[in-house]
């Protein structure tokens, strides 16, 4: 584990998580969740857990983002909070 890189990535992780749940536009929230997944995949790889890292990048950032955009296309884009 590279400690300064770990600290920077974890800082951005918390920032993106707070942004993803506070933004009102749901498409922006979904894209921020995809960015969150990529950052946490980088954290896994940097903690020598390569298999979890690329599975998270493929499933978490790829598939879940696609599922959520597909669900959003069938519902409304604006959120009240």
């Amino acid at each position: 584990m590279i400690i300064p890189l770990d600290l920077i990535l974890l800082f951005f992780l918390v920032l993106i998580a707070i942004a993803a749940i506070s933004v009102r536009d749901l498409l922006a929230a979904i894209i921020l969740l995809g960015a969150y997944s990529f950052v946490i995949a980088t954290v896994y790889v940097e903690m020598h857990s390569v298999d979890v890292g690329f599975t998270e990048a493929a499933v978490g950032a790829g598939a879940i983002t696609a599922f959520m955009i597909a669900a959003l296309a069938r519902t409304k884009r604006e959120a009240s909070d």
Binding site: A17, A20, I21, L26, A29, I30, L33, Y36, G60, I64, M68, A71, L72, T75, A79, S80, D81
Partner: peptide, 12 residues
Amino acid sequence: GNLLKKVIGLNI
């Protein structure tokens, strides 16, 4: 209150 936001919270 939004259900999609709840799913995003679940993922986090």
